[in-house]
């Protein structure tokens, strides 16, 4: 079974600053990592491959340095890595990103065989939209399974797959046909440690690098900034909240006195908490 896992290289910290003069995001100097959510997708893909054979291709769109993340994925045991990089991809919003990634997935299919499953993470920690997965599924007409908590039986002959999907207030058990796009929920598995031999071969492995032309994009106005209907007009740091926490006077008081004051403060600051608690206690 061919599996593609999309991974994004993101800044390792949420502490990103805005340039005071140019008002642009300063990413320089911030260390980068594989988007943590994508590791759950990668691990799930590797497990499926280990169980039923096939190959895992990791795919990332980004600047040339995104190769670092792809190499890291190889050390975990991915079979090959593809980097999409081109100045035409710069400034992509989620619509343009899903366009370029889906073009690349088609090409991966042509070269190494069509994937039965395309994985993405639930969302990234920088853009944080959770829109790219659904975008790819829609463009490639893959059955879309988002927020998947558990992958159930896969019937490869019948071409069906069952999954548990996190829905509002519960879990949906869904059955659909391969090929599918799965966005994997966090906390669903634990990333393996890469083996030493995988690390050694990853260091030597070739990362396939494609540009827009390589993946058959003739009309470059569909990618990057030009292919992006959303326009970021302004980036700014949130104004820190003026008032800091109101400190409860604690000097010279016993823990029980502090607790009593705190409880009464809580009740006086929120209209319904005390009533809710009474109802809860009455129901016990």
């Amino acid at each position: 079974m061919q599996i593609v896992v999309c991974i994004k290289q993101v800044p390792d910290s949420a502490q990103i600053r805005v340039h005071p003069v140019t008002n642009t995001i300063m990413r320089q100097g911030v260390p980068t990592i594989i988007n943590p959510y994508d590791l759950f997708a990668l691990e799930e893909a590797l497990r499926l491959r280990d169980k039923s054979g096939g190959e895992v291709t990791v795919l990332s769109m980004g600047p040339p340095m995104a190769e670092d993340s792809l190499r890291k994925a190889l050390t975990f045991g991915a079979d090959r890595a593809v980097l999409l990089t081109d100045r035409f991809f710069a400034g992509s919003d989620t619509l343009a990103t899903s366009f370029s990634l889906s073009q690349a997935i088609k090409k991966i299919g042509e070269v190494w065989g069509a994937p039965s499953i395309v994985f993405t993470g639930k969302q990234t920690i920088d853009g944080d939209t959770a829109q790219v997965g659904p975008g790819i599924a829609t463009r490639l007409n893959l059955n879309q399974l988002t927020y998947v908590a558990k992958i159930g039986p896969i019937d490869r002959e019948g071409g069906t797959i069952e999954v548990e999907r996190r829905a509002e207030g519960g879990v949906q058990v869904l059955q659909t046909k391969l090929p599918v796009l799965i966005t994997m929920l966090e906390g669903t598995n634990e990333m393996r440690r890469g083996s030493l031999s995988a690390a050694l071969s990853a260091a030597k492995a070739d990362v396939t690098v494609w540009n827009a032309a390589d993946i058959g994009i003739e009309d470059v106005t569909k990618c990057g900034l030009r292919g992006s209907p959303t326009v970021v007009k302004r980036v700014f740091a949130p104004t820190p909240r003026e008032e800091k926490a109101e400190q409860l006077p604690v000097g010279g008081k016993s823990p029980d006195e502090i607790a009593d004051t705190l409880m009464n403060e809580i009740f006086s600051r929120h209209q319904t908490i005390e009533d809710d608690l009474m109802n809860f206690a009455a129901g016990q």
Binding site: D93, G127, A130, G133, T138, T146, P229, V231
Partner: peptide, 17 residues
């Protein structure tokens, strides 16, 4: 989020999350 991403892509319009 599951729905919005698909609808925006089908309509080829922008979606702010």
């Amino acid at each position: 989020r599951d729905l919005a991403g698909s609808v925006a892509t089908t309509l080829a319009t922008g979606l702010t999350a």
